[in-house]
Design a protein around this nucleic acid. Structure first.
Lengths: 184, 184
DNA sequence: AATAATAGGGAATGACTGTTTCCTAATCAA
DNA sequence: TTGATTAGGAAACAGTCATTCCCTATTATT
């Protein structure tokens, strides 16, 4: 069942909600029409489940990237690098369900909008926490405004997914090198 | 006819391509079904025209914002401030056709992808130009990497439209204040 | 003034959508 | 082994979609 959801995640990432038909879903999930509707109330419920799965996988990946750093500053650097990498290549072209949902659905679907906001808030406070860790361990100056910088970094990460989907190449080292000036 | 296109822009911004029906379009353009198909070959052609109109209006607005600054650094600051303002409030909630197209269509529609890339490239080189102007007039240090910084700023602006559509509030002064550190 | 040409409007159409229903096959309990 | 319960699949259904066709009103021309 989780492998079926992974298929749903893939196709929803790539085409978004409206352009994904039940036929696309059954193909990607390797399930027949009836089976999908036995497991989920409707297409919207499949989407919500796929969103939740995607979000939890991405949260874990981001936390894993952070763990690779020795102090707050390095943890944040690895998080940004991880975002660049996920925004590139085939995964970048496939796209991010959170960004897709924000753009395609959040204007008309309050349930999806709430999930998007929750995911953005979680990411933002995770980043703000890393900044504060860095300030505590001395790797980031005290005068850095943690909340404002975190919000700008959310803009950066979401924006990277947009330009990654448009297939603009991103150089991780150089881009993150510039972005780290925000911690000066 | 241009006022009809403005209506198409509005509804395409808000709902995206697939979620916008011909009925939505006729209502927003205040034209009957047949009239839409007399003026445009199909829905896709309406979208392309709306995209082009939106892009040219936005280009002009961005250039206008830049003109409010006295040197390269200030021009860039006004451009960023203008982006924050356009990403907020009712216009922010409505959304950006470029971001919407990148996310919803660029994976499957090469024509749209080309337009998106062109618009991103134009914006990016405009920003890079402003950085170089600032370096020439002394308001921006020489060691700033113009191209890398411009690409990161594109990520920032596109990301602002994403979080603006998700209705996260953005404080222009504070956000841009942080972003200007990229020019240090 | 009469006629040709065109722009605009609205109903009809066929394809495709999400959803439901019903049937088959498999799994588990006794 | 038999019976019951459930997972899975294919076809049918109602509704909506983009598109086309044809009609009306307006404008321009002679």
């Amino acid at each position: 069942m989780d492998t079926a959801l992974d298929g749903a995640v893939r196709v929803f990432c790539e085409r978004g909600y409206h352009a994904t038909s039940i036929g696309d879903l059954t193909a990607a999930m390797r399930l027949a029409t009836g089976s999908v509707y036995k497991a989920f109330r409707d297409k919207h419920a499949v989407f919500l489940a796929a969103f939740e799965r995607y979000a939890s996988v991405r949260r874990e990946q981001t936390r894993g990237a952070a763990a690779r750093g020795a102090n707050g500053r390095e943890r944040l650097r690895h998080v940004l690098l991880s975002y660049v990498e996920h925004s590139q290549g085939s995964e970048g072209r496939r796209g991010c369900i959170v960004v897709g949902s924000a753009v395609e659905l959040s204007a008309v679907d309050p349930v999806v909008r709430a999930r998007v906001n929750a995911q953005l808030a979680t990411n933002e406070s995770f980043i703000a926490g890393l900044i504060r860790e860095g300030q505590a361990d001395g790797s980031i100056p005290r005068h850095v405004a943690a909340d404002d910088t975190a919000r700008l970094m959310i803009c950066i990460t979401q924006g990277m997914r947009v330009v990654g989907k448009a297939r603009l190449p991103l150089d991780g080292t150089r881009l993150v090198g510039v972005a780290m000036k925000l911690l000066a």
